[in-house]
């Protein structure tokens, strides 16, 4: 893992009672308190949940109405410049001038980050290669596809070698292949490059593929903050699909002391240990059922938040996810 840069435990981000109101009417953040440790952290919530607002407060781009926040133990209210030196930011919206090349804009921004001219040029070439822009980096950004623009936005966030990346909806507007590539880039940034990443997204199905920790917010409040790993261990599901005899199978499994649920032609079994595998094999054989498949499924990530203090029904989840 890449956390060798943090020899002693460091608080990446700590937010206490953070509230942000716009014009008194809209509450973007409502007394949010959460602590985030280094790693790849997914910040999930539906549109308008307060994700962008939180990232902007961490950068000192906007001031909170009340409450406090620290990044690397530095107070955002008083140490904005010191924080921004250590942070790279990829905004949600388009932020690139169309009439210059990717090389020009990224090396210019590297210099604004304080890199000397030669170093800025070298780092620019390096990060553009990392994000997968080659010859096209000399062309004007106006002619780029959305995927290429998103790569340039990521490159400018990386060019000054930050210790923390804040990514706001990095897969916005990308096609499925583009999303996969962007997620892979984020995963590499977090693991190989050893840079802590906070990635805001409304798409749980995407974010779970790269994150090792999830922070869910809704209506400016914290729903839940939990490591992804611990959650999936705890709530695995075994799906047993049979051509017929579904109900009989469920009955026998329940009688054997397992928690079961019917989902279409499949029986879903709560998987807490190895015991159900043998039981399923034996019961299916005994009843002589035409077995189609046995597969391990993960709960919808939505369920992670259902266990939390409040239900999070509006959070989007991938349509292919597992059972309810």
């Amino acid at each position: 893992m890449g956390w060798a840069r943090y020899p002693c435990p460091v608080s990446l981000v700590a937010v206490t009672n953070l509230t942000k109101r716009y014009g008194g009417a809209i509450t973007a953040l409502d007394a949010l308190t959460v602590e985030i440790e280094p790693g790849i952290v997914g910040l999930v919530g539906s549109n308008g949940a307060g994700k962008s607002t939180l990232l902007k407060i961490l950068l000192g781009l906007i001031e909170p109405t009340s409450g406090s926040a620290t990044v690397f133990d530095l107070d955002v209210a008083t140490h904005g410049i010191a924080i921004r030196e250590l942070v790279g930011y990829m905004p949600e919206h388009d932020c690139l001038p169309p009439d210059v090349s990717a090389t020009d804009v990224v090396s210019h921004l590297a210099r604004i980050s304080g890199l000397p001219r030669t170093a800025a040029r070298e780092r620019t070439a390096e990060v553009l290669r990392h994000v997968g822009l080659y010859e096209e980096r000399y062309r004007s950004i106006g002619g780029y596809s959305t995927g290429m623009r998103q790569r340039v936005k990521l490159a400018q966030a990386l060019v000054h070698d930050p210790r923390l990346l804040l990514l706001d909806e990095p897969t916005n507007g990308l096609d499925p292949a583009g999303r996969d590539e962007m997620l892979e880039l984020i995963r590499r940034t977090g693991t190989e490059f050893g840079i802590a990443v906070i990635v805001a997204s409304h798409l749980l199905g995407e974010i779970e593929r790269v994150c090792d920790h999830l922070v869910a917010i809704e209506g400016g409040k914290l729903l839940r903050s939990a490591p992804l790993g611990s959650f999936t261990e705890r709530t695995g599901t075994l799906a047993v699909e049979v051509e017929d005899g579904r109900d009989a199978l469920a009955e026998r499994l329940t009688a054997a002391g397992l928690q079961t649920m019917i989902d279409g032609s499949a029986v879903l079994i709560d998987l807490r240990d190895e015991r159900p595998y043998d039981l399923v094999r034996d019961i299916v054989a005994e009843l002589g059922l035409p077995l189609v498949r046995i597969e391990q499924r993960r709960h919808r990530l939505e369920d992670l938040f259902r266990d939390g203090p409040e239900p999070a029904t509006e959070i989007a989840a991938p349509p292919t996810a597992g059972p309810r």
Binding site: L59, L61, R84, G88, P91, C95, L109, S113, Q156, H160
Partner: peptide, 15 residues
């Protein structure tokens, strides 16, 4: 700078 949203990139830097 305003039209293309570049300000966010400047203000997110150490100045």
């Amino acid at each position: 700078d305003q039209r293309h949203g570049v300000l966010a990139l400047y203000f997110a830097r150490a100045l």
